[in-house]
Design a protein around this nucleic acid. Structure first.
Lengths: 241, 241
DNA sequence: GGGAATATTCCC
DNA sequence: GGGAATATTCCC
């Protein structure tokens, strides 16, 4: 038995068996035609089901109903014993399962197992895309970081070189001072002698730079503390007017 | 019909139907008992299959055989017309499907759809592992980057400080020069005057630092070019002994 | 021979 | 009511 459209066999068979007036005492439409009622589960499962499906189990039938989104209709007087002889009946309903409107069956869709199936493939491929993107960012990041490291490396070298030049210059200034004090001062320049002592001359205490780069301790931020000898301010030198 | 062990219904039914001597003219064991032969596909599918399964299609039967890892036995004289009346026969074999040894059935396992199910879980968990690793790398990266940034910051500060000290030193040297030339030179120190000209005196041309921090041009490695005024070496200065 | 959708069973 | 394994169908 084949179905014409995209409607699964279960649905067309269901509509057919509910609509079949020959089995109305076992299964039928509700009064409004918006649901169907199985009047006698026992006889229905043994006599009707095997005519349409490959089994005669009410549970398997209900499993399929749930797979297609049908719901059991809970009567208002549930829990009470019925007196109309329909105590064994169950009613099922689906928005698009209607008497006289079999074309609505195309709107009923079987549930796909949510955790697997089509959904997974999409999710996984999306995750893979995102991971690959992240790896790209990481790489460009790596590149920038390495560039920054090289930059820093050069900066430290320049700073070190400058530092040494500064030390040297300081020593020279000290020697000049010494020279002026010793040579010029001894020739009788009293005024100059008074003004120079505040210039620090002990340049040799700085011959070993207090600052040297930490021996490549990766990228820690233990910065060496500079303590450059203070050079006298220009005001300490006699104006050369 | 229930199976006792963990053996799927398909396998126990298969072994039973092959072993059943009542249907030997339609299906039977091979001579060695290591495979089974369907002698008449047409009659087998219509008469035997529905006795055990919910269908009478040879293709569905073969689909299940494949799902359990059975393989068609290709006879050596395949392609030739048979004369023993077995032209319609097919033979299937599985390592653990043997006559007189139904206990081996427990070793036969149904294939799980490779692209889904168990496999997916593995892929997903591997992806999660990779993501977690990446996050770890990123974190250590972040840490290093921040350290480097602090390091760099300090470098700039030190460099700036050194620069200022250098400027100041330079101004002092200029003043000393001026002082020597104006004061000492006018008092007749000819010898000194001859040795000093190589020292640059135009200190004011350096009042605006040639070097200044590039305005946060991210992380490029365009290092600023230092051009400090060269200071004369100590040998150029008369010893102050 | 096997992928994938639907169907049936089993189990929580 | 629904997850998951197995079974059946459909299709390549």
């Amino acid at each position: 038995m084949k179905q014409n459209y995209q409607v699964p066999a279960f649905l067309t068979k269901l509509w057919t068996l509910v609509d079949d007036s020959c089995t109305n005492e076992l299964v039928c439409w509700s009064e409004e035609g918006c649901s169907f009622i199985v009047l006698d589960e026992q006889r229905f499962s043994k006599e009707v089901l095997p005519l349409y499906y490959k089994h005669c189990n009410m549970t398997s039938f209900i499993r399929q109903l749930n797979m297609y989104g049908f719901h059991k209709v809970v009567p208002l007087d549930s829990g009470l014993l019925k007196e109309d002889g329909r105590g064994d009946s169950v009613e099922f309903q689906h928005e698009h399962f209607r008497k006289d409107q079999p074309h609505l069956l195309t709107l009923i869709h079987r549930k796909v197992s949510v955790s697997r199936g089509v959904d997974d493939a999409g999710q996984i491929s999306q995750i893979l895309v995102e991971i690959s993107q992240a790896r790209g960012w990481q790489d460009s990041f790596d590149f920038k970081l390495m560039a920054l490291c090289r930059d820093n490396e050069s900066l430290w070298r320049e700073l070190n070189s400058l530092q040494q030049k500064h030390q040297q210059q300081h020593r020279i200034i000290c020697k000049i001072m010494q020279f002026i004090i010793n040579t010029v001062g001894s020739k009788g320049m009293k005024g100059l002698k008074r003004k120079l002592p505040m210039i620090e001359i002990s340049g040799e205490t700085h011959s070993v730079p207090k600052y040297s780069r930490p021996s490549d301790s990766s990228v820690d931020s233990n910065l060496p503390s500079f303590s450059m000898p203070e050079t006298p301010s220009p005001q300490d030198i006699p104006s050369a007017v």
